[in-house]
Amino acid sequence: MDVLSEILQTLHLKASVFLHACFRGEWAVDTSGQRRATFHLVASGGCWLHMPDSEEPIPLAGDDLIVFPHDARHTISNSQYPVADDFPRNQLPDDSTGGPGVTLICGYFDFDRDSWNPLIEALPAVMIIRNDGITSIPFSHSLRHLLIHEIEAAQMGSRLVIDKLSEVLFINTIRHHLKSDSDVGFLAALADKKIGKVLSRIHETPAHTWSVERLAQVAGMSRSAFSGRFTQLVGLSPMHYLSRWRMSRAHNLFQSGDQSVAQVAELSGYQSEAAFAKAFKKQFGYGPGAARKAARHTQLKAGS
């Protein structure tokens, strides 16, 4: 079971580019506050990233990719000094301004935020992939150059290609983060040989009658050692994680299929529809019937 692929599929990820421009002189770009994940790709030139929680500005160079999964406050500008509060932001560049330019590509990553997702929750406020020549993620450098080329070429069908390349860009960014030195968190749990095996089994058969003892056997660990290690890495107890993932998967089944509440309850490991409905409402604040009805309405609207 490729846990990462399954979790990414439940995100219903969609990406889009909304800005491709060359800035000169004094300028500032700030896309925070949109309640959306954003990214910035420096196609050429050099600039600076400013974040309220960072004491020092972060220098950026051509081919650097910056991703904000949680809509963290930030400003990208020409200056290494913080931008004044009253300085105009997000203004289209004036072509008459001379001097060296900085070309930026900016876009959004949209995904399902209604249900809990351990992957998104585990991502940091900002992820930066540098053009340092040592990035170990296959095709990372080539992918960014392909995106830049597709945007600048403006060929027929480019919009769809650009959006799809941007989606792959997000996945590659997560792969890059998986190879970081972090030893705690969900991504570290995926990389852990024993806990990763347990997560794979949970995601492969979430409806199975799992217990801490059975999961510990999968990991090849004692009950106490497994429970402690799982909780340390994931931030949730094994059974709490299982429960939350079952509910997230159930929510996704309502969105992407036409199963009845009883069918989804069974697929989620519940023998009682009433118990399933109670657990579902506790996590989402509304019942499975309402979720199924809303999903059907969305599907019918999309098909009309």
Rank of each mutant, 00 (worst) to 15 (best):
F276E: 06
L178E: 15
A61C: 01
M127N: 07
S115N: 15
P82S: 06
A84P: 03
L4H: 05
L267P: 09
F87V: 08
L60G: 13
E150S: 14
G25K: 08
A216H: 03
S180D: 02
R223A: 10
G46R: 13
A291C: 04
S227T: 12
V261E: 02
R292Y: 10
H251A: 04
D85C: 01
S54T: 10
G220C: 08
A219D: 07
E167N: 05
Q80G: 13
L60V: 08
Q34P: 07
K282F: 07
C22L: 05
S32E: 05
K179S: 10
D192G: 00
D94K: 12
A154F: 11
A279D: 10
K164N: 01
P52N: 04
R249D: 02
L300Q: 14
R73V: 11
N90V: 00
H74Y: 14
A265V: 10
R113I: 04
S200H: 03
A291T: 15
I151G: 12
I66Q: 14
S96G: 11
E204I: 00
S211R: 13
F186I: 03
G185Y: 11
E150D: 05
S224H: 09
F109M: 08
S227I: 05
V198F: 04
F280T: 05
Q255D: 09
Q34W: 04
V17R: 02
M247A: 12
W210H: 14
F276Y: 13
M239D: 07
D110R: 09
S115T: 15
S5D: 11
F23G: 04
Y270C: 07
A61N: 02
S16E: 11
P93K: 03
A216E: 06
K197T: 01
S227R: 12
F23N: 06
D85N: 09
I134M: 09
H177Q: 07
T75A: 13
A153I: 00
T10W: 15
R175P: 08
A21W: 14
Q9D: 12
P52G: 06
E266P: 04
A250H: 00
S115K: 09
R229I: 02
T97E: 12
G62R: 12
A262D: 08
S211F: 03
L8F: 07
M51E: 12
H70S: 14
P118V: 06
G157W: 07
P118F: 00
A84N: 04
L41D: 11
F254K: 01
P57N: 13
S158A: 11
R89W: 02
Y241E: 06
D258Y: 14
S224V: 06
G228Y: 07
R201S: 01
E204P: 01
S136L: 03
S77V: 05
A265M: 12
F39K: 02
G269W: 08
D110G: 06
S243I: 03
F280R: 08
I105M: 15
D192C: 00
T10D: 15
G235N: 09
P118M: 08
G62T: 10
R201F: 00
G185A: 01
S136F: 09
L242P: 00
L123C: 01
I7L: 15
D112I: 02
E150T: 13
G235K: 04
F87Y: 07
A84G: 00
A295K: 06
I129F: 14
A21L: 14
S268P: 10
T38Q: 07
K278Q: 13
N78E: 10
T231K: 13
V198D: 00
N131D: 15
P82Q: 06
V264H: 09
S256I: 01
S142M: 13
P69V: 12
